[in-house]
Design a protein around this nucleic acid. Structure first.
Lengths: 247, 247
DNA sequence: CGGATCCTTGAACCTAATCAAGAAATGTGG
DNA sequence: CCACATTTCTTGATTAGGTTCAAGGATCCG
């Protein structure tokens, strides 16, 4: 974890740190004016964390929040006996943290190398009080996360293993920005890298690692996907994949 | 669905409708000043809806929002082939509706006879813009719903049938206000009525009706609960039930 | 009292989990 | 760059928890 940039000069209207930032317009910072942005950036730091790094831990008091600038973060819950469930995945420019609660009930962990913009908890909570636009953005993200969580509930409660895996692949495909896609021989073909291991996919879908592997193999045999080097997926026809999701 | 009360006089500081209302302080209305409360109540109506009534339908444009004053509301999603999953249960004084989205992706349905305070969509959205406190309350409720949804994700993804049923019973017990409880012969004993049918419990827990029934029977044989008249549950020792939930 | 709905129980089946082994990919140090 | 260790993934055989199919019993309501 190394700090890449420091705070900008005080009278800089749009801080350097924020200028090329993904969260600057699409994320919560889009709600801030130049002064607020300057203050936030003065006490923020951009950091790159390696895969596996824990950002927030259940039962640990939270001292900071972050915006994701690149990479993928998983939110998970665990039972006392070790059974684990991933309850959410977050991508840029999502906000990571649980405002108005001294501690999180979740563990937040980077699943890939991830770039974060991190700032202290009390600063954000103070800015929320000053800027209703900021709270509005946070509210909208919470509503989006609620929709995601409820979609996943339907998946876990009612879909077959095959449908779950197809649903997951489609979700990742949709989170892969056009242009970052792999180049397909066929023009219409979509391709992407899975950010998660098989074990993580299993924890996300409420399955075992073996079942995930078998279903990927079967989707491959059915011609719905091709799998290259374990993590690289190609989808010749997105409609075909969508038809496997059950919805 | 019958209207019970009409709007109060314009210069009434605290409207009649709101005076004895559960949502007045604990719900979102707690964020409103007397003027705002008067305006909201002028365009609200209190209604009693019977069990089974649909409040909001997926894919239908939303025209109104409600506060729950009494009763239980279920939020559900359905796959094209009819498989169904309940993704949330709401109790008084919860707010029902999805602000900032022209339509809901969920169906909201009364599971018991329910008392609602209903008001038009555009009014609420206008008041949100005026009152940051109102949006703050809505945000807090969304965060609470997100926590609930994620707890349920862990249940659906990783718990056994027995643990799921125990988890559900404990959740209902905790939502049964002290005093509304049934009188136990033993003082320490808790008791409550299940608001849901076996079929609804199954839809909530991602199980079948038969499995729910069997697990209730087994919890009964184990002495963890007693079941009277199908819907009435008694829990001699809450700790014993909590020990069955897996967490 | 009769009909409908809701709930329970049993038997057979099936999907996904578990147990087990080996193959592929990744990373490390020489 | 290769040999080796480690982690990740796949595949097979078996098991088990929950579903499906089927029937009968409670409970509720007019």
């Amino acid at each position: 974890m190394k700090v890449l940039k420091r705070a900008p000069l005080e009278n800089d209207p749009v801080p350097d740190l924020c200028r090329a930032c993904k969260a600057r317009h699409r994320g919560i910072c889009g709600a801030l004016d130049a002064d607020q942005l300057a203050e936030l950036s003065r006490r923020s730091h951009k950091q790159v964390v390696e895969a596996g790094k824990t950002l927030l831990d259940a039962e640990e008091p939270t001292t900071s929040y972050s915006n994701i600038l690149a990479g993928v973060v998983k939110l998970s819950k665990m039972l006392p006996d070790g059974r684990q469930q991933i309850v959410g995945l977050q991508f840029a420019p999502d906000f990571v943290g649980r405002p108005f609660s001294p501690e999180s009930s979740l563990k937040a962990e980077a699943v890939t190398a991830t770039v974060l913009c991190t700032f202290p908890r009390n600063l954000l909570e103070r800015m929320i009080e000053q800027s209703s636009g900021l709270e509005h953005r946070l509210y909208l993200q919470a509503l989006a996360e609620l929709d995601d969580a409820r979609d996943l509930l339907l998946t876990l409660g009612r879909k077959t293993a095959r449908e779950r895996v197809a649903t997951f692949l489609l979700m990742i495909a949709r989170h892969t920005p056009k242009g970052e896609e792999l180049e397909g021989e066929a023009e219409s073909e979509a391709g992407f890298d899975l950010p998660l291991t098989r074990a993580e996919i299993a924890d996300f879908l409420g399955l075992t690692i073996e079942t995930v592997s078998r279903q990927l193999t079967k989707l491959k045999s059915s011609g719905v996907i091709r799998v290259e080097q374990n993590r690289r997926i190609r989808v010749p026809d997105m409609e075909l994949l969508a038809a496997e999701t059950g919805d």
